[in-house]
Amino acid sequence: MAGLNEDAQWIVLMGFVVSFSLFFLAMVLNQSTVVGQTTAESVLDFPKNDIRDLRTVIIQSVYQENVDDSVINNDIVSIALARKGAIVNYSSYTQGSYTYINIHYDNGVTVYNETWASP
């Protein structure tokens, strides 16, 4: 820059400042897009309907009569693992006039635990 006059040096310097500023803004916008995308994906990944369906099937199976509970438990666990890739465990017990069901759902992203009680 020794051969340029002062006006030309000022123009080149401002060009560097503007290009660096644009590069910095592009990086900031790129990162904010990634953060927004992952946040939206985590909301979409919440398996609300899968948990509802599973919960309904478990509650119905607990109240069925003349059925082996271990067979139904194994079927629910294996189907949830094969179709949804989720680990499902549940247990039920009766205390007084209430029936309690403990439901655990884990698909690697979402962990859901519930204790359901019915009179």
Rank of each mutant, 00 (worst) to 15 (best):
A82K: 07
I72A: 06
I87G: 00
T94W: 13
Y105K: 05
K48G: 04
D7R: 11
F23A: 03
V62F: 05
Y93I: 01
A2G: 10
E65I: 15
N49D: 15
S61A: 15
V109C: 02
M14L: 15
F46W: 08
V77R: 09
E41N: 08
V111I: 09
Q95G: 06
I51T: 09
N113D: 15
F24K: 10
S78T: 05
H104V: 14
S70Q: 14
H104W: 09
A40D: 03
I51M: 06
G108R: 10
L25W: 01
A82G: 05
A26G: 12
A86V: 00
G108P: 06
T110C: 12
N74Q: 12
S70C: 01
L29C: 02
N107K: 07
V17G: 02
V111H: 00
S78G: 02
D53C: 12
S19Q: 10
Y100E: 04
N30F: 09
F23N: 07
T115I: 14
G3A: 10
V111R: 03
T39Y: 04
N66E: 12
N66W: 08
D106L: 04
I103C: 03
K48S: 15
D45H: 09
Y100M: 04
Y63G: 09
D7F: 14
F24Q: 15
L25A: 06
V35G: 02
N102C: 06
A82I: 11
W116E: 09
S32I: 12
Y93P: 00
V88P: 03
A117I: 06
D75N: 14
F23C: 12
N5D: 14
V109F: 05
F24S: 14
M14N: 11
N30T: 05
Y105V: 04
Q60G: 10
K84C: 01
A80M: 11
A80K: 02
G108C: 04
D45C: 05
L25T: 10
S61Y: 07
Q31G: 03
V109H: 12
N113I: 04
G85N: 07
R83E: 14
P119A: 14
I59P: 04
A26L: 08
V43T: 01
Q37G: 00
T56R: 10
R55H: 15
R52T: 13
E114Y: 13
I103P: 02
A8E: 06
G3C: 05
Y63W: 13
I11E: 10
S97P: 06
T33Q: 11
S32L: 11
V18I: 10
N66G: 09
N30V: 03
S118N: 14
H104S: 15
R55G: 12
E6K: 06
S61E: 10
